[in-house]
Design a protein around this nucleic acid. Structure first.
Length: 567
RNA sequence: CGGGACGUAGCGCAGCUUGGUAGCGCGCAUCGUUCGGGACGAUGAGGUCGCCGGUUCAAAUCCGGCCGUCCCGACCA
């Protein structure tokens, strides 16, 4: 490609916002443009990178035996009703009415559709299978942001495995795990695999792949010592035991005028330290009100509440709901003496006594609460792990950091087999459900995440494998006959050797061309100018290392090849 | 879903308070001088001021509605 004929618009003045660097370099650069909220157009350079990312993914999935399909984006509503996911994924599903008045779903993912295809399987002899496609997904995210990191229309490689049993699933899961790690490595990212919540996918175990980044939207709790790592949505930690006072506690009411928060009560005369209080929250779980109890200094993890109860719609109760249920307003709530309401208590409260909590009467609290004696609760892990707490595996200190979720793999089990009648006959002629797994990786998000991990103050530093071009030949003086001849010849030669090269023959000042090449992130720049030509040399500039060196003209193709080979 | 802000040329913005002929920077076009790290000069092109309605002799400006985009929140009772 000749740059002078290409559409490579570089917007140089950058807006002073706190956006992700990838957003700035892609959306304000030569790669993509926003069309509407959460929807982006790929420009030629962006499409080249996207195609390379997809090629890497395809190569790795083919490498573990994947068979490529292409399933549609338009789905009948009925199939989403059969699995019930029209409800569990209602918030993100986009749909429309067709001309016959029927509802068409724009596919947010393809478990149902692949399962429909797999329903055609009839014998255990046909298993295992590994199917995948690379297809557009539509998800109506409440708040798209950070450029390509969180969007409403995006490309995903999603694969699905079908096995006769869980041992088979485990094997396919392991192969995907390894393939995914190879993909992230090739995209130039250091990624940590973490235990995650399966959310609305309808399965049990799942592993998320996290690329640490300040602009990430997920939190990871990790132990540097033993390698334990989990999404904060599921992370656990060991707490130091708290020694409660000896002896039987006796419940005692006391007035606490003006006290509304845990914090207030810690300083109120006769109050209690936060870790000696019971925090009482009221939540609506699919419309049913329930009390959620935590230690005063702990924070509820919504996702744990959802996972433990299976509730889909979880929200804090409204003020009126609370006062109607308990007869008091938030700030004076407690679970003692409450019946006919589901009470969910965090494990950290188990066996505690001499505790303080609200009295269900405004401006009143009670102390001397023995949790076991006074509250009939279901015990669940509900709290959010905090940095500094002890690792459940080795006891060392946990740290918490933000990360971008670049991949997620699920052991789905027989959920879809049960809902969609996906069975085969085993060797005894008995009907058995197909055990399913699903494995997703977002193409554009990985493009953006790769930039987050590969940039400097001059712009993008693409890994060679996904750079839009390998080499740019920068012609300092395109109007100089000798420069034009040499650069054209080199361009032809490199192209003939299968190297992806762009010839910057624009009639711009050299500084502009150097800056653009760096901003866009082309791994190797070869400068052709009168100064070098006088000495029979070309100048190589490596984007990542920043190294500059002269190369005799005749050696250039070999040296380019050597540079690309060394990766 | 709750709260806030913004919408004026391809991009980034001013003008609006106090209604009266549409502005700036970058970019773009032509010419000239330059040109091995974001050149300079001259001359130009380019805008239904998001949309609809209202007030007014007169609306980018005031009022109402709608649409769009962005930000914060949707955990601490």
């Amino acid at each position: 490609m000749r740059w002078s004929e290409a559409f490579i618009p570089t917007l140089r003045d950058d807006p002073a916002d706190a956006e992700a660097i990838s957003h700035k370099l892609l959306v304000r650069g030569a790669y993509v443009r926003q069309l509407m909220s959460g929807v982006y157009s790929m420009l030629p350079l962006g499409q080249r990178v996207r195609a390379k990312v997809m090629a890497i993914i395809k190569e790795e999935i083919d490498g573990i035996g994947g068979q490529e399909f292409l399933l549609p984006q338009l789905h009948p509503l009925s199939i989403w009703e059969r699995t019930g996911r029209i409800d569990t994924m209602r918030d993100v599903i986009m749909s429309f009415e067709d001309n016959k008045g029927g509802t068409v779903v724009l596919g947010p993912t393809h478990e149902e559709i692949f399962a429909t295809a797999a329903a055609e399987l009839t014998s255990y002899k046909q298993l295992p299978q590994l199917w995948y496609h690379i297809q557009t997904k539509f998800r109506d995210e409440a708040r798209p942001k950070s450029g390509l990191l969180r969007v409403r229309e995006f490309t995903m490689k999603d694969s699905y495995t079908f096995d006769t049993d869980f041992a088979g699933l485990d094997e396919q899961f392991g192969r995907h795990f390894a393939a995914y790690m190879r993909i992230f490595d090739r995209l130039g990212m250091e990624v940590v695999a973490v235990k995650a919540s399966s959310g609305a996918m309808g399965g049990k175990d799942s592993v998320e792949f996290m690329a640490p980044s300040d602009v990430g939207e997920d939190d990871v709790a990790a132990c540097a010592s033993c390698g334990y790592a989990a999404n904060l949505e599921t992370a656990e930690s060991t707490l130091e035991a708290i020694a409660d006072p000896e002896g039987d506690a006796e419940i005692e009411r006391f007035a606490t005028p003006g006290v509304r928060t845990i914090e207030d009560l810690t300083t109120f005369p006769g109050g209690a330290a936060a870790d000696r209080q019971i925090k009482t929250l009221v939540y609506s779980l699919d419309g049913e009100l329930a009390l959620v109890l935590l230690r005063g200094d702990h924070v509820l993890q919504d996702q744990k509440l959802m996972d433990a109860t299976g509730a889909i719609e979880v929200r804090p109760a409204h003020g009126e709901e609370i006062s109607e249920l308990l007869g008091a307003d938030a700030g004076s709530l407690g679970a003692v003496g409450v019946s006919d309401v589901r009470i969910l208590a965090d494990e950290a409260l188990r066996d505690r006594h001499h505790m303080t909590t609200g009295a269900n009467q405004n401006d009143m609290h009670i102390r001397g609460v023995d949790v076991t004696r006074d509250i009939a609760a279901e015990w669940i892990d509900l709290r959010t792990v905090e940095a500094g707490e002890a690792c459940v595996v080795c006891g060392e200190e946990l740290h918490v950091y933000t990360a971008i979720e670049v991949g997620h793999i699920f052991k789905l089990g027989t959920f879809y087999a049960d809902k969609l009648d996906m069975t085969v006959l085993d060797e005894n002629g008995k009907t058995i459900p197909i055990v399913m797994g699903s494995y997703g990786i977002g193409v554009e998000r990985n493009m953006a995440a790769s930039i987050e991990a590969n940039h400097d103050d001059k712009g993008i530093v693409w890994p060679i494998e996904i750079a839009p071009y390998h080499v740019v030949i920068t012609v300092v003086r395109p109007d100089d006959e000798r420069s034009a001849e040499v650069s054209a010849a080199l361009y032809e030669e490199l192209q003939a050797a299968g190297i992806e090269v762009i010839l910057d023959d624009r009639k711009e000042r050299p500084g502009v061309k150097f800056t653009d090449a760096e901003l866009i992130g082309i791994p190797l720049r070869i400068t052709v100018g009168p100064r070098g030509l006088d000495n029979g040399v070309l100048e190589f500039a490596e984007r990542r290392s920043g190294e500059n060196y002269e190369v005799p003209m005749t050696d250039a193709p070999d040296r380019v090849q050597a540079f690309l080979d060394q990766g």
